[in-house]
Amino acid sequence: MEFSFVQELVHRLKTFQAMQTDVVTTRAEQRMREVQALMRARRISGVPVVDEVGDLVGIVTIEDIIRALDHGHIEEPVDTWMTKDVVTVRDRWPLTESMSVLDRTGYGRLPVLDESGKLVGIVTPESILHSLLVELNRLLAQDEEHPHQAVDRSAPDGLRMEFQVTAGDYDSAGLSSVRLKRELANRGLAQDVQRRVAIAVYEAEANLIIHTERGGQILAVMDDETIRVTVEDDGPGIADIDLAMKHGWSTASDLVRTLGFGAGLGLPNIRKCADHFEIRSAPGYGTRLNLRFDLTPAARGDSAPKGPAGRGDEAGAGE
């Protein structure tokens, strides 16, 4: 049974999350001797060979070096002795897929290619183990904060809502936010929490609509103590997170601004609203936001409507 947790973990990860990105490469016209020296210096057992535009053309492994040495051809170019029929994996494949290729072929490393066939990394058993440990660590840190989280994800009063957000669909902005807020209102949460969650989710939604290539998902899970919101997309990712977190900085187009978005306040506002804010992003791979809202007794219990009566929040209106 212990395996199922790790299996679930592996299943969730994509290959790019487990690859090593600072890959040492060589060119076909280099001599085998130079590659041998490179491998010794960097303590690696295989070097991908790329052409001038970064396309993978082969790989030189320890076995290739030994073969060349055996035949006294160590001074010859890589082109003659490299393995040309390279088994590769894709960056967006589930990690399980790449692991089964490693397992099936018995190779110690697999070059990782992106959609356009460019070499973007390399997966090895070590890089996979490393990524699993990092992910485990993250989950453990979460569970230490909220130990019940690991065992009970569906408390009786719990709530789980998932939203798909479509890129470019400006008119639907705020839809997830309003639906979620209505559920929180139905559960009698305090106005302040409802408001902070609604604003953060609205901003996240707007980001998915404006900035992503294919939209993304928002998942909100509530239990007795917290509301956790995860926002995930698969690209294009943020090149400079520090800059994106700055008030007023935006890459949005004029059209987007005309429609009322792109003020460059989104991420800072989300951070302001949430009790815990975590962002991870890599250009080419997408962005993931982890938000947490703590439910203090006041936040959970105070269901007294604030402000004038007759508001529409609880009306169950038809969106």
């Binding site: 400006y170 008119d171 705020g174 936010s177 309003v178 807020k181 604003i199 609205y202 009322g260 529409g312």
Partner: peptide, 11 residues
Amino acid sequence: SPPAIRTALAV
């Protein structure tokens, strides 16, 4: 546009 109304609801 409808998002303006949803903004009112959110805040």
